[in-house]
């Protein structure tokens, strides 16, 4: 960069190089190296044993359970997130600030505590334990508990993505639609939904990534029954504790790949997102 083009707010080149260097080094050390290590460890004995570890019935059950959990959690939180964001951004009511704080709760509460809450409510010794046993309903140590815990941990993602977006968009377009005779539902589908669809997709992807990777809360409610209530992160931990490193890292590599695919989709979304979304003044 020539001195003539230097802008007032730019720092000297050596400072920028230093800051950039620190960031790059940090990313390599904390993100890229461990990710690479996962794949290196998985393939240490070649592709065969790695595929075998993934093909193992327990591993397959864990993959299936993870996908099912995500399939339950994501739609639920997408609907909840849209409702919550709509309520918060387009309306004013007493207790609104409190609701926004509540939505953030899962971000601040340790996932383990979240899991414990469900054990306390639905566990055999919990508040509803006896009633549940009498009626032969399994929540803890079963899919419903795992889904509940995952929903708790991931529910802020969609809402948090949409609230600022909807607040910025305001209610003018909705009011315009209503003044032209559109019903509330029609207004939502024709005006609100198209305006938030990209933000919604983005939130859904983040929510999905977290739902598949959740460990703490699920660990508390799952019971770690192999082939039944182990999700992928739990399965990885068990394999690792049994010194089956190739197995552990192979499943871990698969989980990493799912995450990478999510992030690639997210990036694609950002590129594809048409420039017509924004209405400048």
């Amino acid at each position: 960069m020539s001195a003539g083009h230097r802008l007032a707010h730019e720092d000297p080149p050596w400072i920028r190089a230093l800051v950039l260097g620190v960031v790059a080094a940090f990313l390599v050390l904390v993100l890229l190296l461990p990710m690479a290590a996962v794949f290196v460890e998985a393939l240490r004995k070649g592709l065969g044993p790695a595929m075998e570890a993934i093909g193992n019935p327990d591993a397959r059950a864990a993959i299936r359970l993870t996908l099912i959990t995500a399939a339950i959690t994501v739609p639920f939180n997408a609907v909840f997130g849209v409702c919550a964001a709509w309520a918060v951004a387009k309306h004013s009511f007493p207790g609104k600030a409190f609701l926004i704080t509540l939505i953030d709760l899962p971000f601040s509460v340790s996932p383990v505590v979240a899991g414990l809450i469900y054990v306390l409510i639905f566990g055999a010794q919990g508040w509803m334990g006896e009633w549940l046993i009498e009626h032969d309903i399994k929540i803890i140590f079963a899919l419903p508990g795992i889904a509940l815990a995952t929903i708790f941990v991931t529910f802020p993602f969609v809402a948090r993505e949409l609230i600022p977006l909807m607040q910025e968009q305001g209610v003018d377009e909705e009011e315009a639609a209503i003044s032209m005779g559109a019903s509330g539902l029609r207004t939502f589908w024709s005006v609100t939904a198209p305006n938030i669809r990209w933000g919604l997709l983005y939130g859904v992807l983040l929510c999905n990534a977290r739902a598949m990777g959740e460990f703490g809360a699920v660990s508390v409610v799952s019971g770690h029954i192999r082939g039944l209530t182990n999700t992928m992160p739990l399965h990885i931990e068990i394999l690792y504790n049994e010194y089956d490193f190739v197995g552990a890292f192979s499943v871990a590599a698969l989980l990493c790949l799912l995450a990478v695919v999510t992030l690639v989709l997210k990036t694609l979304l950002e590129i594809v997102q048409p420039p017509t979304r924004r209405l400048g003044h």
Partner: peptide
């Protein structure tokens, strides 16, 4: 109704 910032449906 014509809104101050027009409120055209941007999509």
């Amino acid at each position: 109704f014509v809104f101050q910032q027009y409120a055209l449906f941007r999509h």
